[in-house]
Design a protein around this nucleic acid. Structure first.
Length: 436
DNA sequence: TCTGGGGTCCTAGGACCC
DNA sequence: TCTGGGGTCCTAGGACCC
């Protein structure tokens, strides 16, 4: 839950006109004017959310096969330890939900067909939808692979239509251009739009009229609000707060005393649909991670360490692909009994090569393993403390025999990335780094 | 019944510094 | 002779989201 921002920023007239001229060239096909940048214009936010996105993409990929399956589960894994990422509406009628273990889903719906997540196709569909939306709205923010926030403040006057009509137009355009069915929620803030899109599903539109926000939010239970998960809902229920209605009766000071300043303020504002969140281009990434759940728990140290190397290779490739270096390397273990532990280390200088990351990760893994020696169900490596790769480094000061990575190591890593790009992932396999 | 993989944000204690 | 206090970084854990 983010409590950042404090409403629309005020922009000086000069900045507004500069932005507006930039916008006109970028959105040449739109009749955009200065009105939509007016910080005084009431916020009109839309959330475009794909209907069972992974199921739709899997069907589009294979129209004759998977495309004809009504009872379809996307997710699971060849190891048999997966969960359902997305289920068709027909399968949901049997009680299947996303996040449910695939084995459990198949007990509820034995005739369902399970297919893996078509990751690459999902990513490119997501980009296509984003491109379409950028032509239809001035500000588009991809909140996840299948959700997009649009800021349409001021466009009602501009387009000469109500937000509901704009929403329908956008829904039809996305369907026509990408063949993906979406639902659209609208309102005065991100959080209202997010609640509204659920009422719109499937394949519909729901716009909360200006002034109706509080009445609309009041029809929900607290646990239905985005940002209130099972744990928070239990805390609230202990205070007798179950419906939004219940919490509306409590003064801010009491919510702060019960829940802490940050969460108390957040809840007080959210149920009144006060939401400082703005729609803007996505911020820089904060972390890159790779993790893997094994088909069977791993016990042998050499096997575990070999898997760590593979995970480091994959995480560092993703790091370099994003154009980053990382200062903090964290190893995560989930034991056979689902106990999850992690250990991390922060370096004085950011690194980017497989070798350096593995050299930091290996002692962390050994430390975790020595604390608790049980089978390893899952292992992961997270890279944080990211810096842009082009940022100047202190390498010169430290380059020596004990430096974790040299300019030569980095150059080599990029050559290998390039080979993998051209000849496939298996073109270059790690070998020598195995014995540090 | 057995629990994925990719993220973001918050908390809280201890170290360290001024 | 007793105990400062505030800011920032690091680390581990957890809640939450899709």
């Amino acid at each position: 839950m983010s409590a950042t921002g404090s409403g629309p920023r005020r922009l000086s007239r000069r900045i507004i006109s500069r932005l507006a001229s930039g916008m006109r060239s970028r959105f040449a096909s739109l009749p955009l004017g200065i009105a939509m940048l007016d910080p005084e214009a009431p916020r009109r936010i839309m959330l475009v959310d794909c209907d069972m996105f992974f199921v739709q993409v899997a069907r589009l990929m294979d129209p004759e096969g998977v495309g004809r399956e009504r009872l379809l589960l996307v997710g699971g894994s060849p190891t048999g330890r997966g969960v359902v990422t997305s289920a068709s509406y027909e399968a949901r009628a049997f009680g299947v939900r996303s996040g449910m273990p695939t084995t459990q889903a198949l007990r509820l719906c034995p005739d369902a067909v399970v297919v893996p997540v078509p990751r690459g196709a999902c990513a490119s569909k997501s980009r296509a939808i984003n491109d379409t939306l950028k032509r239809l709205a001035p500000v588009v923010q991809a909140a996840s692979i299948d959700e997009f926030y649009l800021d349409l403040s001021g466009t009602e006057r501009l387009f000469g239509e109500e937000l509901v009509q704009t929403a329908r137009r956008i829904r039809e355009a996305v369907l026509a251009e990408t063949r993906v069915s979406v639902s659209v929620g609208g309102g005065s803030s991100r959080s209202v739009a997010k609640l509204a899109v659920r009422r719109a599903k499937p394949a519909g539109v729901h716009v909360v009229a200006p002034g109706e926000e509080e009445t609309f939010v009041r029809t929900h239970r607290l646990g239905e609000l985005p940002g209130i998960g099972p744990a928070f809902a239990v805390v609230l229920a202990r205070r007798g707060l179950v419906e939004v209605e219940d919490a509306l009766r409590i003064e801010r000071a009491w919510l702060r005393a019960w829940l802490g300043e940050v969460r108390g303020d957040w809840l007080y504002d959210r149920i009144r649909s006060v939401d400082g969140g703005t729609v803007s281009e996505r911020d820089a990434r904060k972390s890159v991670s790779t993790e893997r759940t094994f088909g069977h728990d791993l016990h042998d140290d050499r096997t575990v360490e070999r898997e760590l190397l593979r995970i480091c290779v994959s995480a560092s490739a993703a790091l370099r692909e994003g154009g980053y270096r990382a200062r903090t390397i964290t190893v995560k273990l989930r034991d056979g009994d689902f106990c999850t532990r992690q250990a991390g280390h922060t370096l004085p200088d950011a690194v980017e090569t497989d070798h350096a990351i593995y050299a930091v990760a290996l002692p962390l893994l050994r430390e975790l393993r020595s604390r608790r020696r049980t089978g390893v169900r899952l292992m992961g490596v997270a890279l944080t403390g990211l810096v842009e790769r082009e940022a100047p480094t202190q390498l010169g000061l430290f380059a020596g025999d004990d430096a974790l990575e040299s300019a030569r190591d980095r150059a080599l890593a990029r050559v290998i990335d390039d080979l993998r790009d051209r000849f496939g992932r298996a073109a270059v396999l790690p070998g020598r780094v195995l014995e540090p």
